[in-house]
Amino acid sequence: MKLNLKTTLLTLLLSAAGSVSAFAQCDKTATLTSSTTSYVDNTGAILRSKDEDTKVTITKTDLTIAPGEGEMTGKISSSTCDWKVPFKEGKTVIKALMTGDGPDKHVTVTIEGKEGKVTLTFEAEEMPGKKIQVVADKFE
């Protein structure tokens, strides 16, 4: 019985530590780089792909997207974060008003990790039916 209690307590402590770690990463600055941008429709079918270096930086309050030569920045208006394993298994959804190249855009960015692969999907209210996806080559 004593061993069972120690094992249960250790399991609970490790679980709590993992949860705190996953939660803590949500408030940290993250930078993602990708070498390919894909344009997809509502069903997820790829319409076209483009080889270009894209850098996405996310802080607690700001979102910066720099594909190729351009750059868009925005203030984050809302964010949800649920990662079981930081930047490997989980999901973050960010809403922001982006300014930069062209007219302002109200965007939703979904960052999803499955089996260690991190994918970002960008959707703008002003561009219904069109999505932009990048897969992280590097995540810091």
Rank of each mutant, 00 (worst) to 15 (best):
residue 34 S to I: 08
residue 27 D to F: 14
residue 83 W to E: 03
residue 108 T to C: 12
residue 34 S to H: 03
residue 38 S to Q: 12
residue 8 T to Y: 10
residue 76 I to D: 02
residue 102 G to C: 04
residue 67 P to L: 11
residue 110 T to W: 01
residue 13 L to R: 01
residue 39 Y to W: 10
residue 14 L to D: 11
residue 118 V to H: 04
residue 4 N to K: 14
residue 82 D to G: 14
residue 35 S to G: 15
residue 27 D to M: 11
residue 105 K to E: 11
residue 38 S to N: 12
residue 44 G to Y: 09
residue 118 V to S: 05
residue 139 F to N: 08
residue 136 A to R: 00
residue 52 E to A: 09
residue 90 G to D: 05
residue 68 G to D: 10
residue 68 G to E: 12
residue 40 V to W: 02
residue 35 S to V: 12
residue 139 F to Q: 12
residue 90 G to I: 06
residue 16 A to I: 12
residue 130 K to T: 03
residue 53 D to F: 06
residue 106 H to W: 02
residue 39 Y to F: 15
residue 51 D to E: 12
residue 64 T to E: 07
residue 126 E to R: 02
residue 26 C to A: 12
residue 22 A to F: 05
residue 77 S to F: 03
residue 8 T to Q: 03
residue 107 V to P: 00
residue 79 S to W: 04
residue 21 S to H: 01
residue 22 A to Q: 03
residue 31 T to N: 05
residue 25 Q to E: 09
residue 27 D to N: 15
residue 132 I to D: 00
residue 45 A to D: 14
residue 128 P to L: 09
residue 100 G to I: 00
residue 3 L to G: 08
residue 24 A to C: 10
residue 115 E to F: 06
residue 82 D to Y: 09
residue 4 N to H: 11
residue 35 S to C: 07
residue 23 F to T: 06
residue 106 H to N: 15
residue 87 F to S: 04
residue 12 L to N: 07
residue 48 R to E: 13
residue 80 T to I: 04
residue 111 I to V: 15
residue 107 V to R: 00
residue 41 D to I: 13
residue 58 I to P: 01
residue 112 E to G: 13
residue 44 G to C: 14
residue 122 F to Y: 15
residue 44 G to T: 08
residue 111 I to G: 01
residue 10 L to A: 08
residue 56 V to T: 06
residue 21 S to V: 13
residue 42 N to W: 06
residue 7 T to F: 13
residue 41 D to C: 07
residue 31 T to I: 08
residue 129 G to Q: 05
residue 18 G to V: 02
residue 124 A to H: 00
residue 100 G to V: 00
residue 61 T to E: 14
residue 86 P to V: 02
residue 116 G to T: 13
residue 130 K to E: 10
residue 80 T to Q: 03
residue 48 R to Q: 15
residue 127 M to N: 01
residue 15 S to V: 11
residue 102 G to R: 00
residue 8 T to N: 08
residue 11 T to V: 07
residue 102 G to T: 01
